[in-house]
Design a protein around this nucleic acid. Structure first.
Lengths: 344, 344
DNA sequence: GTGAAAGCGCTAACAT
DNA sequence: ATGTTAGCGCTTTCAC
């Protein structure tokens, strides 16, 4: 016997012969309601199958009880982890997660953010597409926001990010220490903040060993398996063959592995490969892939913390900071079998 | 100059010196509004930064403009794909995605579904935890619902699922054809519909070759990497060592691979492994892992289609079917290097 | 302690 | 074509 029309607070009141405002109070544990009545109200509500209407409740507040998460895509480990952790942790706070997928497209991204605004989310966590429209940024300014991974250059939002530069410093230095000097780099374009900073880390490491990086060995492009596959093949077929390869993105690492396999190269005998991220299979592949632990779980959790802090700040009138917080996570090197001394 | 109080339809009306209902009409492209006025309204709305309030709008409808997706977890390839595809395709329909993660826990699952009800979602797609509470099922009955993967036994919702039995029939038969007779099985418990049906497929294949499956070689347990790792080690250290192993879940496949590697076994020389799902690295691992393509993308898309259909049906008063649709996808075998003839 | 009434932002009758 | 008037379900004064 499924009711058709949803049960309202008024139905419950009528059923009990009391005022509907009393029902509201009772259900919210407000003071000045006799324990006896409260019990009866709760019983009646349960019996009739009353479900509060979040929309109606929201009319009295500046925002509702959900938060938004906007990510470019799911294959990227970080974003899947973020979705999982945001959903779980905010659920514990009684907040729902509205998920927007931008597909790395600025227009779609704007549409998602607009939708979240209409839904009156209490806060937004976003991993931008890196080329966000002005209107998007403007909208985000009116809501507690945390920027995940700081992919855009110059955004001035509270940010939780890897120490991108350090990550590649660590990775590249590892290869240099093993004796590599002809080291190739595959990463994202410098239009992305992440791409820019990671390349800087690579260059810094090379510089500190007095090695001049060869422009031909630096491949920047889309964060896709395909791009990295092609780039790797290009690199390994060129006149100057690198003995080491650092990859600065998890999906690109997959592409590099694929290419290396199809070229029949052995790790680390023919090439030392240093990956990015902690995909579950890295430890299973061959002798294991040496990689940078990007601490996706820590990053997502920090994002939740900061967003919660921002939300309280907003509530208390302290709105956007001129000098927004930047939470930067240090990466770790996970040493496995894909790196070794260069072939002699 | 970020406005503090959100701009309403009334503000726009006041600004223009017209009735607020006219603004409403103009903004929704309703008839009987002069083109000239409509233009002015739109301009004013944009200028003042008007954002519709989804909650208020919802008060006049039985439900709002979002749909819910409840999944157990993200590591499972299917669920991540579902999140991606649901978010993307429903966004095209102007619907937001509210995401709930149940962590395979019935209580949490109920809480998620309750939250979605309060948010007045227009429909729900759910991959149940397999032991859903009665109250959960009852709630779902009052909303257009599609069951993803049919993990619960006997749920009577519209369902989009793999042909689980066929998938394992295919897998097991492949090993039998290669000459294997001592075949082990690792899969989910029979409390899960998926686990039950897949095991049935395994048994059917064995039976059709006249092979009696050994109970000791059938390992059912949690859909985790860990369980499968332990189970594999147990199997390979037992007195009767299988020459072939079929795994009936993607995460468990990872565990099996891990165990096989740590035992120093070579695929397919020492053991033929038949995996489940199409994780991106299966083709990269060793000579590639022979596996069942579980068509996660097709499955998710079919889920979207069915949910949309259900939503229209509800709108038209045709509510839950006594004989709900079951959309069953056939699987394909992807033959790679981890399977071969049994060691002689 | 409880009821009555106002109003949140919006849509949709109902008036002009 | 535009204005006026009820509500939608709820929270929150303000009465009693």
């Amino acid at each position: 016997m499924t009711n058709n029309k949803p049960v309202t607070i008024k139905d419950v009141a009528k059923h009990l012969g009391i005022a509907f405002s009393t029902v509201s109070r009772a259900l919210h544990g407000k003071p000045y309601v006799s324990a006896e009545l409260r019990a009866r109200v709760e019983a009646a509500a349960a019996e009739l199958g009353y479900v509060p209407n979040a929309g109606a409740r929201m009319l009295h507040k500046p925002y509702g009880s959900s938060i938004g998460l906007v990510i470019p895509d799911f294959p990227n480990q970080l974003f899947a982890t973020a979705a999982q952790i945001f959903a779980t942790r905010f659920a514990q706070e009684g907040l729902n997660l509205m998920l927007g997928v931008s597909g790395d497209d600025p227009e779609t991204e704007l549409r998602q953010v607009m939708a979240l605004r209409e839904a009156r989310v209490a806060g937004i966590a976003i991993a931008t597409c890196g080329r966000s429209l002005d209107r998007t940024v403007e909208l985000l300014r009116s809501i507690p926001t945390v920027d995940l991974a700081d992919r855009s250059v110059n955004l001035q939002f509270p940010t939780v990010t890897l120490d991108d530069e350090q990550s590649l410093l660590l990775a590249t230095t590892h290869l240099l220490q093993l004796g590599h000097r002809t080291i190739a780099y595959i990463g994202g374009e410098s239009a992305l903040g992440t791409g820019q900073r990671r390349l800087a880390g690579f260059n810094a490491a090379m510089a500190s060993y007095g090695v001049e990086p060869l422009p031909r060995l630096i491949q920047q492009g889309p964060l896709t398996v395909d791009f990295a596959r092609m780039a790797t093949i290009r690199l390994m077929n060129a006149a100057v063959r690198p003995t080491g390869l650092v990859v600065a993105n998890s999906l690109q690492t997959e592409g590099a592995v694929d290419a290396i396999a199809s070229l029949g190269l052995r790790l680390p005998d023919d090439l030392s490969l240093l990956g990015y991220g902690d995909a579950s299979w890295f430890k299973l592949y061959g002798k294991g892939i040496t990689t940078i632990d990007t601490r996706t779980v820590d990053l997502a959790n920090a994002g939740v913390d900061i967003l919660l802090e921002r939300m309280t700040a907003f509530e208390q009138g302290r709105s956007h900071d001129e000098n927004p917080i930047r939470y930067t996570l240090q990466c770790n090197l996970i040493q496995r079998g894909s790196t070794g001394v260069p072939p002699s």
